[in-house]
Design a protein around this nucleic acid. Structure first.
Length: 452
RNA sequence: GUGGAUGUAGCUCAGUAGGUUAGAGCACUAGAUUGUGGUUCUAGGGGUCGCCGGUUCAAAUCCGGUCUUCCACCCCA
């Protein structure tokens, strides 16, 4: 033990208690996905850099983990570049693979590659880890799991509505209070067009995304810093200033868009989604939030984000519609929409709010104490019979001190311990100890089985 | 990528005007109790004080660097 072993920055081990809880999250998410008719797929941890680069904006490219080529990779670098190395120039020579950054882009790649085997609209879900070389902090890891659901090959807004229902179902099953925020990139595009700053679309949306965090004055300051004109800023703030309920806000915005085609389209989409939702009586709050932007560049229509109530951890689920993600891979005009659940953040929220059910801890239901060679042989068939009846059972593998065996059962939360020694074997009964009450009873195996 | 804080036993943490052999609780092992755990008592094992270097007769303690974790920014699940 000269050096203590460790794991890379921003990664974590998951011990049994944590895994039981994580599986609880994955299982409920999975069962909701299946309830709506989605099917699972998996894609490799690494993708070619060419499929990853340029899909997440400049910031995203920086956060990609790149994998060094195998073999003598340095010999492939042209000589002049080695003499005077610049990271940006030599990476393309020494790395051609990277760890996936999300599940949506690999999915688009998958769809293009398997287009002839897929029946559209294609509804799939995918639960796998992704990697980002971000600086870790609360709720932010370098390796984390995403749970994606997407429908691809359908422009219908029913898909947006369905995804919102799925979000609602998942979080209500997990007992998490949350707000589902929706917006539409076309609305944002409309605003930017209305104020005459089309070419600054990205910086403007990024700025207004921060509105509730840094306030209107700081947003204005940031906008003028990136070169948005004073007049445009004034127009923008009059749009953002509006206070009213969701429906009033939609009507108010509509007025600005009388001559802005894309904005009108966006507003109509929002209206339609909201009207469908009206009849569904969801338990979660759904909000139209003009300041919701989302950083990923490939979104073109609806955008969705979910924040947990009373826990400050960023969004626990997010997504949107992408009209042409498959286009970059050579299959144009296939629109898709999807959301991604952040399992690790959901875990953190549930831990903080104490939402994990108690019983999720239980593994072994009955343990046989091991008193020695003779007893082992005598007990083994009993464990087998219990398992055949669907009861989790184990026989302690060593004839260890009783104290150690009881301690093991106690730490593992095993509710029943069976003691079988000379007396029991002679009398043909089993001594069963209830580990919660401490009480002991003589029973037959059938009686034990009938207890469960 | 920028700024700030942090790091002592498996875990949570004490320990500075630099000075013998670095402590506690929990956990672990053994015994009190040779067939009874979760309560109690006793004893024991376990640390090159994150790592590297510097100052000093002497460094867990002071200085520099580096890494980790945490927090804010950027961005995001």
């Amino acid at each position: 033990m000269a050096q203590k072993p460790s794991i890379p920055k921003g990664t974590r081990d998951f011990s049994p208690t944590e895994m039981v809880r994580r599986n609880y999250i994955f299982d409920t998410i999975k069962s909701v996905f299946q309830l709506y008719g989605y099917l699972p797929i998996e894609t490799p941890a690494m993708e070619n850099l060419s499929t990853l680069l340029g899909k997440y904006g400049e910031e995203g490219d920086k956060l990609l983990f790149k994998i060094l080529n195998s073999g003598d990779y340095i010999s492939k670098v042209p000589n002049p570049k080695i003499q005077n190395p610049k990271t940006s120039e030599i990476t393309s020579f020494i790395s051609e693979k990277g760890l996936r950054f999300d599940l949506t882009v690999p999915f688009a790649r998958y769809v293009v590659q398997h287009r002839n085997d897929i029946t559209f609209p294609f509804k799939r879900y995918q639960i796998q880890p992704v990697w980002r070389s971000d600086r870790p902090q609360k709720g932010r890891y370098r390796e984390f799991f995403q749970c994606d659901v997407d429908v691809i090959g359908s422009k219908s807004l029913l898909n947006e509505v369905e995804l919102i229902q799925i979000i609602n179902d998942v979080f209500s099953r997990l007992s998490i209070n949350c707000t589902i925020k929706i917006n539409n990139r076309k609305v944002l595009a409309g605003i930017v067009e209305y104020i005459g700053e089309i070419e600054k679309f990205t910086s403007i949306t990024v700025a207004i995304d921060k509105l509730d965090k840094i306030g209107i004055d700081n947003v204005k300051q940031e906008l003028s810093l990136v070169g948005v004109s004073e007049k445009a800023i004034r127009q923008l703030s009059s749009i953002l200033d509006f206070e009213g309920d969701m429906n009033e806000n939609v009507v108010y915005l509509g007025k600005f868009f009388e001559s802005v085609e894309i904005g009108k389209e966006g507003i109509n989409e929002v209206k339609k989604v909201l009207s469908y939702l009206d009849g569904l009586n969801l338990s979660s709050k759904v909000e139209f939030d003009l300041t919701l932007a989302r950083g990923l560049n490939y979104y073109t229509g609806a955008i969705i984000e979910v924040v947990a109530s009373d826990v400050q951890i960023g969004s626990i689920c997010g997504g949107g519609r992408y009209d042409d993600l498959t286009g970059i891979f050579g299959l144009p005009d296939v629109s898709g929409v999807g959301v991604s659940f952040g399992a690790d953040r959901i875990y953190d929220v549930m831990l903080e709010k104490n939402l994990f059910p108690e019983g999720a801890q239980e593994t072994t239901q009955v343990m046989f104490v091991n008193f020695g060679e003779k007893e082992q042989k005598y007990c083994l068939p009993f464990t087998h019979q219990l398992r055949s009846s669907g009861i989790n059972a184990e026989l302690f593998p060593e004839p260890a001190k009783l104290k150690k065996q009881m301690n093991y059962a106690n730490n593992k939360n095993i509710p029943f311990v069976v003691l079988v020694g000379d007396n029991e074997m002679k009398g043909n009964y089993l001594t069963v100890k209830n580990m919660n009450s401490g009480e002991q009873k003589q029973m037959s195996l059938e009686e034990i089985i009938s207890q469960f």
